[in-house]
Amino acid sequence: MAKIIVVTSGKGGVGKTTTSAAISSGLAMRGHKTAVIDFDIGLRNLDLIMNCERRVVYDFVNVINGEATLKQALIKDKRCEQLYILPASQTRDKDALTKEGVERVLNELIEHGFEYIICDSPAGIEHGAFMALYFADTAIVVSNPEVSSVRDSDRILGILQSKSRRAEQGLTVKEYLLVTRYNPGRVESGDMLGVDDVQEILSTTLLGVIPDSESVLKASNQGLPIIHDKESDAGQAYADAVARLLGEEVDHRFLSVESKGFFQRLFRRSA
């Protein structure tokens, strides 16, 4: 059974695209045929992080409008055999996404044998975000450890469980919380919410905690999904999250200042 996973948050700039790139790459690295779709019409940047922007000919909206076939628009990832990217249009507006159109594309991907379809949601709770989450059966809600981001995540969880297709069918959407840009030092000094606080407020399953890491910025500037950087704590944390998504039990790491990740970073910086 194919899984449609939306990466969403409500708030912008929390790490949805970073997460979509990492998780989709991670699933493909684990041998699963995966497609990642950029729903951020007009503000596309998944293709940048995936380093395929120079190979974009057709996009998601072209496929919806019947101006290109899905096959023409899908871009094969250079690093992962099993990964395909469906880029967003830079020129259209979000209304180009229709429920029927999105559903058709998703169904076609499933027919082509894709096991995982990752939907990278735009920020906000308007049309584009709604389209990204509507067909999902699983949601990864990305939250930064601060109050406003957590509140937006809460809102998105509510929308997922009341407005999505599964909700309309009387079913629930499987929900996962991914806390990103986590800085244990700032948590200890009280500048940031701890992961326990975030989980207490959102009361949902924790998929992982991704440390705030310079390696993320570096990787995305190079067009490298961070999960390929096996040295970095963030890359390792994403790999753990992928394992949990696949049903494995993996302990959470990088939660405290004493953790290896933090010292490695210190060490690397001074070296």
């Binding site: 509140r151 509510g158 469980q161 629930t172 009361s203």
Partner: peptide, 8 residues
């Protein structure tokens, strides 16, 4: 029986 979220 399920959490009542912000905005609901």
């Amino acid at each position: 029986t399920t959490p009542v979220r912000s905005g609901q």
